[in-house]
Design a protein around this nucleic acid. Structure first.
Lengths: 183, 183
DNA sequence: TCGTTACTGAACATATTGTTCATTAATACT
DNA sequence: AGTATTAATGAACAATATGTTCAGTAACGA
């Protein structure tokens, strides 16, 4: 990839992230993005068909980053099958979120975007599906699997939202406890 | 209220409902609303400051309708304290939704709007709070009340969404069962 | 060095928003 | 029934946002 392209793309993503932390996606204009990224209007449109495509690609890169490291073999062994009894993929995700790389909290907080949520949930589903035992809970006996899956994912997302909206005062460990109390 | 005002307001609400069942709130323009409602542009703005205020008032009227009848004294006695064992406020809501008065399903389905969701959840909270016993569950002992409340409401909303997205093939009774299995 | 590719910036058509105002028509009140 | 009030109209308006076009310039890779 041409260095110029890369730089432009990064400038756009960076400007977009900053703006997302300040206001809702729908309130953000292309004009604001290119001003902040300091690029020409035509340049923006040569990279992204519309603002929605920008969000789409932004989500893809972001989740690729988060869920790939999360799902990699090392982390798999280190966190999911850890023997201290409290380790779990959920705890690890809560810990990751607390760091707030990439301003992901702004996107996850309840103000924000539906498309983003869909991406987040579908990535979460892929991640959780690789730990199939979760879906073989006794609770699963008398209800459709998709209902049960949806329930776990939604509860996880809502737990995150509650955590954020309440100032993230609790430790990731405590949040994980709360999560497992209701799931 | 002047009959002309009432008619205009109804025409706007009706056009808005039709459009909401076809596309996302953000995609709807004032132009489309006034075309479909067959009113002048200035008329629209004399009724609603912006499109967002329209949504706000629309939600208020809609939820007032649903939750008021739900929470009225008669229904209170009839459904919540019914003695057949299966009756509950949740079942009644699922039944109400199945009828799809006011195209509420389009609004609740996962495509749609955040503001709407906030209204729905906050009304739900008020309704559920009046049945305080729900919040005195044994599950509540070791976690914040607000977390528990949020969990019940979110699970209810996600159950509805799952139901809609899966074609509403299940009966309200069965959905209520699923709901109580995970809550 | 040279051919290719990306960025520029300015201009452009189009669409949407929200306002204004003089005119017309329906309504409420007595 | 007559009158004062209130609402709707539609056309025009400025302001803002979108997405496109294109010729010129600069950076890139080989």
């Amino acid at each position: 990839m041409d260095r110029r392209q890369r730089k432009t793309r990064e400038a756009i993503f960076s400007a977009f992230t900053e703006l997302l932390s300040k206001k809702d996606f729908n309130q953000i204009t292309v004009g604001e993005i290119i001003d902040r990224a300091d690029i020409g209007r035509a340049t923006f449109y040569s990279h992204f068909e519309t603002k929605d495509f920008l969000l789409k690609e932004f989500c893809e890169e972001l989740f690729c980053h988060i869920f790939d490291t999360e799902n990699s073999v090392q982390n798999h062994h280190k966190h999911i099958f850890s023997c201290d009894g409290s380790g779990s993929v959920f705890l690890h995700l809560f810990q990751h979120l607390q760091k707030n790389d990439n301003n992901i909290l702004a996107l996850l907080s309840s103000q924000n975007n539906e498309l983003f949520m869909r991406y987040f949930k579908s990535n979460l589903e892929l991640l959780i599906e690789s730990h199939f035992s979760l879906f073989e809970s006794s609770k699963n006996k008398n209800m459709p699997l998709s209902f049960w899956k949806n329930h776990i994912i939604s509860t996880f997302v809502e737990t995150i939202k509650w955590w954020i909206d309440n100032g993230m005062k609790e430790s990731p460990e405590l949040i994980t406890e709360y999560f497992f109390m209701v799931v």
